[in-house]
C-alpha cells in the first residue's frame, strides 16, 4: 500500500477529480464481527482450494507445502461459514468464537 502511495506522489501529472477515492485503503477490522470461526481439519483436507474460491471476503490462501495448509486472515474473516458449507471433504467446522480473536 505504501509503495502505491509513493509511486503516486512521485508522478508528475496530477489532475483534480470529484467524488470519493483514495490511494490508501484503510480497512476496518471486520474480523471482530465474527461470532463463529472456521476450524480446518488439516489431516482430512485435500488442499483443493474450494473454500478459497467461495470465500466472499477473499481471505483464504492455500499453502500446499505447509502444515497449516489453509491460511485464513483472521483480521478480515467475518465467520460467514460459506467455506464450511462448500468444502467437499467437509473438513471445516464452525466453532464458537470465545476469546475475541
Amino acid at each position: 500500500m505504501l509503495n502505491q502511495q509513493e509511486t503516486v506522489m512521485n508522478k508528475q501529472k496530477r489532475f483534480k477529480i470529484q467524488g470519493p477515492c483514495a490511494y490508501e485503503f484503510d480497512s476496518g477490522n471486520t474480523g471482530s464481527w465474527r461470532i463463529e470461526r472456521p476450524q480446518v481439519d488439516f489431516e482430512t483436507c485435500v488442499k483443493c482450494g474450494t473454500c478459497a474460491t467461495y470465500c466472499p471476503a477473499n481471505v483464504i490462501t492455500i499453502e500446499k507445502d505447509k502444515e497449516i495448509c489453509v491460511d485464513i486472515m483472521w483480521d478480515y474473516c467475518k465467520g460467514c461459514g460459506i467455506c464450511a458449507n462448500e468444502c467437499p471433504k467437509q473438513c471445516i467446522t464452525m466453532v464458537e468464537e470465545r476469546c475475541g480473536k
Binding site: 477529480i17 470529484q18 467524488g19 470519493p20 477515492c21 483514495a22 490508501e24 485503503f25 484503510d26
Partner: peptide
C-alpha cells in the same frame, strides 16, 4: 473523472 486502471490501482467509494 474517477476510473479504474489495474496498472495504477485506487480505491473508489472509500469510507469518507
Amino acid at each position: 473523472n474517477l476510473h479504474l486502471d489495474p496498472s495504477d490501482p485506487i480505491v473508489i467509494d472509500n469510507l469518507t
